[in-house]
Design a protein around this nucleic acid. Structure first.
Lengths: 206, 206
DNA sequence: ATTATCTATAGATCTATAGATAATGC
DNA sequence: ATTATCTATAGATCTATAGATAATGC
């Protein structure tokens, strides 16, 4: 009954790093802070991960994998196109809801550290490309059938991303500027989820 | 014919700070770097602005003012509701296009430095509240007339923001991951502008 | 023996200020 | 006299590593 947990120090360091990097980004988080949060000394952080940059890269990769695979989950089941898209949008939204600081982490790092973009490319290379292609083909069929207007898959993906991501990017603004508490934000998020689905689906009508 | 410019050192410092803060955010920009960029020594930055934080605040306020006033420009002229909204969306998009790093700057600072949100509150307090109220009233009339479905003004604003902002937030990703050059991005941006207008307007249909 | 953890510290920033010197305004 | 600009530096980080000590695995 150790209570707090039987995590190894290494795991505790990763946990602390994840929490802090997600909250404040790379630049504003120090290895000393991570160590304090993990309950060890600062040298140990470097013992396990050598450099702050490598530690960050570890977290970043992990998170980006969650992000991408989760998004691509809804597969080729025999469901009508519109219904499948609806589920994809909702799954994306739910994933963001469960990882609210992810969009901030990604944008922050991809913008301030273009070198990091390489690691996205790697993860984007394999699975997602396939799923994207499949989505493209299904879309083309619908366009050919005349059930969907002529629109590029990139435009659909971008719309979904935009509408979903900003709900969580602006969370601190809702909190501080509009004085929303968790309940109020919950209500907003639930409404936006429906709204976003409706908007994207409506935008496909011929 | 001094060539380079007749700006005062103070102005040069502000210019350099603006450029660097917009590019890398607060944390990753040092006063030494700003000084170098402005062609003076680092102490002078502090002579004029006392602290790095105050310098940042100056830039931030300036930019947020541009952001807000530009957005609220399209006023009460006698134009049909839908046409007016279209123009607002396009004006917002164009403003972002002319200040591409603004969304990043805002999000970055509002998320990592909640204290900064106070300065947004101040600027958001006066003019925008009025314009927002006016927009709300016009919207209500349309809903009453039955030309627009029942939707909150916040939802419309959020949709516009989301769709427009992400185009520019993702610029570095388009550049690096998809290998887009300026011409390719220009094409994408022009298409998204139309797309965003169309989506928002379509989402209002009863 | 090897791995995990700690203490201590070198070396690299970086912010902010003190104090000297040059430029400008009356 | 006042304002602008510079040099120099104190003091506060912060990263990374060296080297000592404790814990663990055979």
């Amino acid at each position: 009954m150790t209570g707090v947990s039987d995590l190894t120090k290494e795991q505790k360091i990763m946990q602390a790093a994840e929490r802090l990097f997600l909250e404040k980004g790379f630049a504003l988080t120090s290895t000393g802070e991570i160590a304090k949060d993990a309950g060890c000394n600062q040298a140990l952080v470097h013992y396990y991960f050598r450099t702050k940059d490598r530690l960050f890269e570890t977290i970043f990769q992990k998170k980006i994998t969650v992000f991408i695979t989760d998004f691509m989950q809804i597969g080729g089941k025999r469901i009508p196109f519109e219904e499948k898209l609806r589920r994809k949008i909702e799954a994306h939204f739910d994933m963001l809801d469960a990882n609210r600081q992810l969009p901030f982490l990604f944008l922050n790092e991809l913008i301030t550290n273009p070198a990091r973009i390489a690691s996205v490319k790697e993860n984007f290379g394999v699975l997602p490309a396939k799923v994207y292609r499949q989505f493209s083909e299904e879309l083309e069929k619908e366009i050919a059938k005349g059930t969907v207007r002529n629109i590029s898959p990139l435009d659909i993906v971008l719309s979904v991303f935009s509408l979903n991501i900003v709900v969580f990017l602006m969370l601190p603004v809702f909190r501080e500027v509009f004085g929303m508490d968790e309940a109020a934000f919950r209500e907003l998020a639930d409404r936006r989820k429906k709204e976003n689905v409706a908007m994207v689906l409506a935008s496909l009508r011929p």
